[in-house]
Simulated assay, not measured.
Amino acid sequence: MPERPTVDLDPLSTGERERRPVRPFVVEDVVRVPLDETLRAVAVALRARDVSFAVVGEGDDIDGVISERDLVAAIAFGHDLDATTARDIESHSLNWASAAAAVGDVAEEMLETNVRHILVCHDDGTLAGVVSMRDLLAALVI
Results as ranks from 00 to 15, higher is better:
2 P>H: 09
2 P>S: 11
4 R>M: 13
4 R>K: 11
6 T>E: 13
6 T>R: 14
7 V>E: 13
7 V>F: 14
8 D>T: 13
9 L>P: 05
10 D>W: 05
13 S>V: 07
14 T>E: 12
14 T>M: 09
14 T>F: 14
15 G>P: 03
17 R>D: 00
17 R>W: 02
18 E>Q: 14
18 E>Y: 12
19 R>N: 11
19 R>Y: 00
20 R>N: 04
20 R>K: 14
21 P>D: 05
22 V>F: 11
22 V>G: 08
24 P>W: 07
25 F>C: 03
27 V>W: 01
28 E>G: 15
29 D>L: 06
29 D>H: 12
29 D>C: 01
29 D>A: 11
32 R>E: 07
33 V>G: 00
34 P>K: 06
35 L>I: 10
36 D>V: 06
37 E>S: 13
37 E>R: 12
38 T>A: 00
39 L>Y: 10
39 L>Q: 01
41 A>W: 01
47 R>E: 11
47 R>W: 02
48 A>V: 02
48 A>E: 15
49 R>N: 08
50 D>K: 15
51 V>A: 09
53 F>C: 07
59 G>S: 05
60 D>N: 04
60 D>L: 04
60 D>P: 10
61 D>N: 14
62 I>T: 14
63 D>G: 01
63 D>C: 10
65 V>N: 01
65 V>Y: 02
65 V>H: 02
66 I>P: 01
66 I>N: 05
68 E>K: 11
69 R>P: 00
69 R>H: 11
71 L>E: 06
71 L>Q: 10
72 V>S: 08
74 A>D: 03
75 I>F: 13
75 I>P: 00
77 F>C: 04
79 H>V: 04
79 H>Q: 04
81 L>F: 09
83 A>E: 14
84 T>R: 01
85 T>P: 00
86 A>Y: 07
86 A>C: 05
87 R>H: 14
90 E>A: 08
95 N>K: 03
98 S>C: 03
101 A>M: 11
101 A>D: 15
102 A>D: 13
104 G>Q: 05
104 G>H: 02
106 V>T: 09
106 V>L: 00
107 A>H: 08
108 E>Y: 04
109 E>K: 11
110 M>R: 03
110 M>K: 04
111 L>T: 06
113 T>Y: 07
114 N>R: 11
114 N>E: 12
115 V>W: 04
116 R>Y: 06
116 R>F: 02
118 I>G: 03
120 V>R: 06
122 H>N: 15
123 D>G: 15
124 D>R: 10
125 G>Y: 13
127 L>N: 10
130 V>N: 06
130 V>Q: 09
130 V>L: 11
130 V>G: 09
131 V>C: 03
134 R>D: 11
134 R>F: 09
137 L>E: 08
139 A>K: 10
140 L>H: 09
140 L>S: 07
141 V>C: 00
